[in-house]
């Protein structure tokens, strides 16, 4: 990233934007089943958060913030998505049939958890890590 002149405003903004954008991406991911959003756009949002940070400082520093090996994260994401399909197989249904459980939360109503959420988390991680791999590898050249 030599040759780019980075402004103080961008750096300051990026520092605050990173956690906010990440939070927003998780919001998109979790709310996606009922409102606009989902794993795909959530993953892209999270990726842009890190890319913004990388642009403002440098890629190395963004990587430190990430703390995880991106290639490994692709595997984890794919694994989660693929794994989510196996639960209902035990019940004799075809692969990727969704399974749901309802957990009552005293005072707050109830929480519905299902394998599609696990699947969506997998999508989120794959999209996040692949976008970052492509941009960061290009940026590092």
């Amino acid at each position: 990233m030599k040759g780019f002149v980075v402004s103080l405003i961008l750096r300051t903004a990026a520092t605050y934007m990173l956690p906010l954008l990440l939070l927003f991406s998780v919001f998109l991911l979790l709310g996606g089943h009922n409102e606009p959003g989902g794993g795909f756009v959530g993953g892209l949002t999270a990726a842009s958060a890190f890319i913004l940070y990388g642009l403002a400082f440098d890629v190395e520093r963004a990587k430190v913030m990430l703390r995880v090996n991106l290639i490994r994260l692709v595997g984890v994401g794919l694994g989660l998505a693929a794994l989510s399909g196996f639960f209902q197989i035990l019940m004799g249904d075809p692969y990727l049939t969704s399974a749901w459980v309802t957990i009552p939360l005293p005072g707050l109503g109830e929480l519905k958890l299902g394998t599609p959420l696990l699947f969506d988390i997998g999508v989120y991680l794959v999209v996040l890590s692949v976008s970052l791999i492509i941009t960061m590898t290009l940026a590092e050249q």
Partner: peptide
């Protein structure tokens, strides 16, 4: 179990 049809289709 989802109101966002696009997302339910996807996942």
């Amino acid at each position: 179990y989802g109101r966002n049809v696009v997302n339910v289709i996807l996942v």
